[in-house]
């Protein structure tokens, strides 16, 4: 079983700061991390490999520093990693990203046929979740998004059994291999990596590819050039006008509030006191 996990380096949006004057990202404030969903994707691959054996490759597109997220994936348990890094990739939106990644996947597939591709549900910097299904289309394999469980992998029949999260519930899907999954966080918990993985990761040097390493690339589909969407403008979201302040002592405030609420009492379900 050969699983490829696509991983992205993203700024940590939890601590991100925006310069209010220029509406740009304050890079200093945002350390780069492995997209949290992608960490779960790698962990999911590790759990599958425990049952089936095989190889986990990780693939990332980004600047040279993105080797850090490949190393992080090795810590979690991936066997090897590839980074595609080239000026020509810069400024890619999801369409151009899935194109570039699919070129790398073709190359990986030639060397060792790929049985499954796993992506995160979305990357926290863009929150789009469009790259995974895009790759699936380009590789012409079925995508299964929002996966919360991979319950069975049948290598003989070349099928997998998957739980896919829906708005209210889930569905059980059987998909043929090869296929592409995008995973939710609840699919697993990231395990604390064992020391040998840490040492392996510290030593690991990912393979780095540039555009010139690929065959049959249409350069017009890469990077900014290949991106149909552009950012028009950035603005701070309009703040709605505030309403009325209820003034007075605490008791007066509570009384006024009660009056307001009693006007809406049909919405309330007042429990009888026991």
């Amino acid at each position: 079983m050969h699983i490829v996990v696509c991983v992205k380096q993203v700024p940590d949006t939890k601590i991100i700061k925006i310069n209010p004057k220029t509406n740009t990202l304050d890079r200093r404030s945002a350390p780069a991390i492995l997209n949290p969903y992608d960490a779960h994707a790698v962990q999911a691959a590790v759990s599958i490999r425990e049952k089936t054996g095989g190889t986990i490759s990780v693939l990332s597109m980004g600047p040279p520093q993105a080797t850090a997220v490949i190393k992080k994936s090795i810590e979690i348990g991936a066997d090897r990693g590839f980074l595609i890094s080239d000026r020509a990739f810069a400024g890619a939106d999801t369409l151009a990203t899935s194109y570039a990644l699919s070129k790398a996947l073709e190359k990986i597939n030639k060397e060792m046929p790929v049985d499954m591709i796993i992506c995160g549900k979305h990357a926290i910097d863009g929150d789009t979740g469009q790259v995974g299904p895009g790759i699936a289309r380009r590789m012409d394999i079925p995508p299964v998004t929002n996966v919360i469980e991979v319950s069975e992998v049948n290598l003989e029949e070349k099928t997998v059994l998957i739980k896919r999260k829906l708005s209210n519930g889930y569905e059980l899907i059987q998909a043929e291999l090869p296929c592409l999954l995008t995973v939710e966080k609840e699919i697993n918990q990231i395990e604390y990596s064992p020391m040998p993985n840490m040492i392996k990761a510290a030593r690991y040097e990912p393979v780095i590819w540039a555009v010139s390493d690929f065959e049959n690339v249409d350069r017009s589909q890469l990077g900014l050039k290949g991106s149909p969407t552009i950012v028009g403008k950035m603005f701070t979201p309009p703040r709605p006008e505030g309403g009325k302040k209820i003034e007075g002592s605490v008791d007066e405030q509570v009384n006024q509030l009660m009056d307001i609420l009693m006007e809406k009492k049909d919405v309330l379900t007042l429990q009888s006191s026991k």
Binding site: Y192, S193, P194, M195, P196, M198, I199
Partner: peptide
């Protein structure tokens, strides 16, 4: 010994 699984070096 470290706090990691198989944590001895």
């Amino acid at each position: 010994r470290t706090d990691r699984p198989n944590g001895e070096v």
